[in-house]
Design a protein around this nucleic acid. Structure first.
Length: 600
RNA sequence: GGGGACGUAGCUCAAUCGGUUAGAGUACCGGCCUGUCACGCCGGUGGUUGCGGGUUCGAGUCCCGUCGUCCUCGCCA
């Protein structure tokens, strides 16, 4: 007659971040990982950790198992919640006023000694962290980034749904595109010698959804680009992608301003300023020298062309005569740039940006100091100071040459100075819409035009002669598009455009890009066909969620907000991807590699 | 594809001008400790200095190559 013994239940009644003074007296069961252990001979303390926090559990001498507990063992403890003596309260922890006196300990899972310590904030080499990413993610500071990301994305979802958007999934196995980034290819088993491509973005599909009448679409979309990596670029990344019908730029801007305002409030309780200021691309370049200006600080570029045209400094004079530009960056005297700073560091930046050198002048009514001083005698000094808005003692830096180079030189220097003097106020999020980008960019190597944004972007000024010029016409470089970027704190967060919704316009753009009629049909026939069935005017936008969530945490490496990121060489150190595959697998998909089987 | 930095104990780092047996902290193992909270104290194990070659009486250190990680230029419609 064996009485039926109910099996002891090891499952938790509370999490490790939950217990407070109000729980004193109750019996609880906690599950978690052994974080830190403190053995005092007759008494043994364990900080038990789970996603929610740490709770100190106390084991008396009767628990012989306790001394066998290793770091990162997974255990279950049952016991009574007691209040700590005033002297023993840990003010650093939310659970620090209580502890659990354990009457039952069960080891759920043992652990090998971990390759690095989970219970410290010691910096560990990324190589090791990524190899054991599942352990790295146990570290509270790393884990909280993923939790934040989840909260952030869900807040965005709610904001879009509140505005009647429909979330639609688009294919991952799709078609290679001739323009843009390098595609990741997937061989087809069923169609020998043919390939799918992973999407660089859901661009064409979302436009087709507008043709379908979905009207408002969004998606948390994974995108793939086979290009080299950076701190802010992974080969696969996530966009919050959207598209709207019967709208123009304004509507997209307003929608996103609402979504981002709601998201920052919802996920972070941060109030961001809306509407976001708008700035044309040409203004951004002229004022800041870059298309993604950090507007948290001033230090804007000034115009020196008029002064340069009549000055005695031949480099300036000739630059203007050749149709180039001369601009200046006036660095206030209080920032204290030394001659060495200018002639070493800043000149180095200028040269890297394509300049021959960096002309400088410490402004002064008596002619100032520096290489430019001898051209600034008498009236010239005063007129230059007036032209560029400099005061006595300011350090004035000049770039002369083709406008793209002038912008870049001074833009790079401005960005550098912003970082060096910490000019940007931390903890603020300043958004700007940058609008009216150039339509085409000339590629000197292939001697043809490329879309600055993508080939489906509507031109702003179709009448400017664009409809008649041939595909080699330099005038195409003067055309602007209806593309726009969202910039925050000097980062490009996302981009979008008003789209072409007419077949003939789309065909004309393909013509200019050197995509012939036959190729247009083969590669984009379905899109051109779709546009011929009453396509509504539409526009869209996509934001890089990895960058946005990283920035909202004050980080500048997106690996910190990606669960399983890849290295600079696009490898996954944990699972060992990419890897060779069995010859049979290759045969099945009709692939023969040109690489000898060296690393087997 | 180019440039730069780095690679030493499980982890984080040190090692003088090229010179004795490559050290420290931490982790781990053993011992002690009933109020700690990154507990403390005592003792111990632990090294193909990424890998291969070269120079040298002698290489962690210098040279060449290679692999890996990071940053960056090109690239990323």
């Amino acid at each position: 007659m064996t009485a039926h013994q109910p099996k002891l239940d090891w499952r938790r009644t509370h999490t490790c971040g939950q217990l407070r003074k109000s729980d004193v007296g109750s019996s609880v069961t906690l599950n978690g990982w052994v974080h830190a252990r403190r053995d005092h001979g007759g008494i043994y303390f364990v900080d038990l950790r789970d996603r929610y926090g740490l709770t100190q559990v106390v084991l008396g001498a009767e628990h012989k198992d306790a001394v066998k507990l290793g770091p990162e063992f997974t255990i279950s403890v049952h016991g009574k919640v007691v209040a700590r003596d005033a002297a023993n309260i840990n003010k650093e922890r939310p659970t620090g006023e209580v502890e659990v006196i354990v009457d039952r300990l069960e080891i759920l899972s043992r652990s090998k000694v971990p390759p690095f310590q989970i219970d410290t904030d010691e910096e560990v080499a990324l190589e090791t962290r990524l190899t054991y990413r599942y352990l790295d993610l146990r570290r509270p500071n790393v884990q909280k980034n993923l939790v934040h990301r989840s909260r952030f994305i869900n807040a965005m979802r709610r904001a879009f749904e509140a505005q009647n958007f429909v979330e639609v999934e688009t294919p991952i196995l799709t078609k290679a595109t001739p323009e843009g980034a390098r595609d990741y290819l997937v061989p087809s088993r069923v169609h020998p010698g043919e390939f799918y491509a992973l999407p660089q973005s859901p661009q064409i599909f979302k436009q087709l959804l507008m043709v379908s009448g979905l009207d408002r679409y969004f998606q948390v979309a994974r995108c793939f680009r086979d290009e080299d990596l950076r701190a802010d670029r992974q080969p696969e990344f996530t966009q919050l992608d959207m598209e709207m019908s019967f709208v123009e730029e304004d509507d997209i801007f307003k929608t996103w301003e609402q979504v981002l305002k709601a998201t920052f409030k919802d996920a972070m309780n941060v109030d961001i300023q809306t509407p976001f200021p708008r700035m044309s691309w040409i203004d951004a370049m002229e004022r800041f020298g870059v298309d993604k200006p950090d507007v948290r600080f001033g230090l804007e570029l000034s115009e020196a062309g008029e002064w340069a045209a009549t000055c005695e400094f031949m480099v300036f004079k000739e630059a203007i005569a050749k149709g180039g530009r001369v601009k200046a960056l006036v660095v206030p005297a209080k920032l204290e740039l030394s001659r060495k700073d200018v002639e070493d560091t800043l000149t180095c930046i200028a040269k890297a940006a394509g300049a021959g050198g960096l002309a400088w002048w410490k402004a002064g009514k008596e002619g100032g100091v520096g290489p430019l001083a001898r051209f600034c005698k008498g009236e010239a000094a005063a007129s230059l100071m007036k032209a560029i808005g400099a005061s006595e003692g300011d350090m004035c830096l000049f770039a002369a040459g083709p406008r793209n180079q002038v912008w870049r030189v001074l833009g790079d220097i401005r960005t550098h100075l912003g970082k060096r003097f910490a000019l940007a106020q931390q903890g603020t999020w300043k958004f700007t819409w940058v609008t009216e980008f150039p339509m085409f960019e000339w590629d000197a190597d292939s001697k043809r035009w490329f879309s600055a944004h993508h080939p489906f972007t509507a031109p702003r000024d179709w009448d400017l002669g664009g409809a008649d010029v041939g595909p080699q016409d330099p005038k195409l470089g003067e055309l602007f598009s209806r593309a726009y970027d969202l910039v925050m704190n000097g980062w490009e967060l996302g981009s979008g455009s008003v789209r072409i919704h007419k077949t003939d316009v789309q065909q004309r753009i393909f013509d200019i890009l050197g995509i012939g009629a036959e190729e247009q049909q083969r590669k984009f026939g379905f899109l051109l066909e779709a546009l011929s069935f009453g396509a509504p005017p539409h526009a869209g936008f996509a934001i890089g969620l990895d960058r946005l969530t990283a920035l909202s945490l004050g980080m500048d490496n997106i690996r910190d907000v990606v669960a399983f990121p890849k290295t600079t060489s696009a490898a996954d150190l944990m699972c060992g991807a990419p890897s060779i595959v069995a010859p049979e697998q290759l045969t099945e998909v009709h692939i023969k590699t040109a690489v000898p089987p060296a690393k087997a």
